[in-house]
Design a binder for these strands. Structure first.
Length: 385
DNA sequence: AAGTTTGGCAACCGCATCTAT
DNA sequence: TATAGATGCGGTTGCCAAACT
């Protein structure tokens, strides 16, 4: 037996919202709130209009018609319209460079968790960010990658010329040497999965963590971002404080979370902005390229950034999204997260936001990582139970 | 100028999770 | 504890306007 539909599909309007519908929904929510029940909202709006008409000095035919109909929309549709368009302080378009950086950074860190990414950008909706990523940001990166490839090809042909002339074969680039910042990855032992251990591989757990860290979820009326738009990591980091995730038992992870939560933690430090190869602390275009293209581990979900995958852009963004593989394989992503990185002193350590070291305003160094404190170690294995 | 293709985005769909009973 | 219904989320679709031929 299937689930009952949330509304009478045959009797609800679909498609674009008219200004009248918007006005109805907005005025009702402004006055009464959502009432905590989106499904019942369309009917409630009809009732409210009836009451309104009861007190109106004159009633037009159209007004009565509206009243009888209520709002012929599915509750889910009302919710979506409100959240993505009618809600106050929604920003549309005009993404800043900083916002681009944050989106790219978080996408690479946590994948297509649009709601979490949106929570870091006040005024932005997950839908907006998702669309922006699919239609603009991804292509922006792709364009840069093509330029890189062309440049590389030019470089290669020059090298081939040199080889023909009998130069040393050591000039042939070794794939492993292509990036000094990314030595051969260590093969990490699998973490045994146990259902008994606390897991953070669901939205609720992440949400709880965000609440702990004082992000937007801490108070629905408070849109404070968890991360500041201007990440301000100090580099080089204190490498001694960086612990490979897999060496810590889960309990330690939890303790680390508590430690961070209890620390005199300033959220100004960009809780989940990854530290990048080469020690860059924010996403300039160059550092983003480094992370994506010089990473020996291909980023799942970002295959389009690598030249030899066919990006099937048939029609519209959605098709290309599918062709490029929309979902993140956390097992693969972890190889990015835990890939070793050398800092400017050529000290190699495990790179990843889970165990980034951050100094707070008192110059105290501690383990940090917002989503990652609870997320990656578990998320990596969520699909391999 | 007309037809076709592409890009951008609002909205829908289905599933997972949460919550109330 | 089980279940039904509500909510939230990510993926996908389809419309429309702009760009291109």
């Amino acid at each position: 037996m299937g689930r009952a539909p949330c509304c009478d599909k045959a009797n609800v309007k679909k498609g674009p919202w008219s200004p009248e519908e918007d006005a109805k929904l907005k005025s009702y929510i402004d006055e009464h709130g959502t009432g905590g029940n989106w499904i019942a909202l369309p009917q409630k709006i009809g009732t409210a209009f009836s009451l309104f008409l009861g007190h109106a000095n004159y009633i037009t035919h159209a007004m009565r018609h509206d009243c009888e109909l209520g709002l012929k929309r599915c509750g889910k549709s009302c919710r979506l319209r409100w959240l993505n368009y009618l809600r106050p302080n929604i920003k549309h378009g005009g993404f800043s460079e900083e916002e681009d950086n944050i989106i790219c950074s978080l996408y690479i860190s946590i994948g297509s968790r649009w709601s979490i990414i949106a929570a870091q950008l006040p005024g932005r909706t997950d839908n907006d960010i998702k669309n922006y990523w699919n239609t603009r940001l991804k292509k922006k990166l792709l364009g840069k990658q093509r330029k890189e490839q062309q440049a590389a090809r030019r470089g290669n042909s020059q090298k081939q010329e040199m080889m023909k002339k009998g130069r040393q074969s050591s000039m042939v680039p070794n794939v492993n040497d292509l990036n000094q910042y990314w030595p051969q990855p260590r093969v990490l032992p699998p973490i045994p999965y146990s259902n008994q251990e606390p897991r953070f591989n669901d939205h609720a757990s992440i949400r709880k963590l965000l609440i702990k860290l004082g992000g937007r979820f801490a108070d629905d009326s408070d849109d404070q971002p968890i991360i500041n738009c201007t990440p301000s990591f100090q580099f080089p980091l204190d490498a001694s404080s960086l612990q490979p995730a897999y060496e810590q038992p889960t309990d330690a992870l939890i303790n680390t979370t508590a430690q961070v939560t209890n620390a005199p933690y300033s959220l100004d430090h960009g809780a989940s902005i990854p530290i990048l190869p080469g020690g860059h602390s924010s996403f300039s275009e160059e550092t983003l390229e480094e992370l994506v293209y010089n990473n020996p581990h291909r980023l799942e979900g970002l295959e389009f950034l690598y030249g030899n995958d066919i990006v099937n852009v048939n029609r519209g963004a959605s098709t290309s999204t599918t062709a490029c593989g929309g979902s993140i394989d956390w097992g693969e992503m972890s190889s990015l997260v835990y890939a070793p990185v050398s800092n400017s002193n050529n000290e190699t350590f495990q790179q990843g936001t889970l165990y980034e070291s951050v100094s707070n305003s008192n110059n105290e160094t501690f383990q940090q990582g917002a989503l990652h404190e609870c997320g990656f170690n578990e998320l990596r294995y969520s699909g391999s139970q």
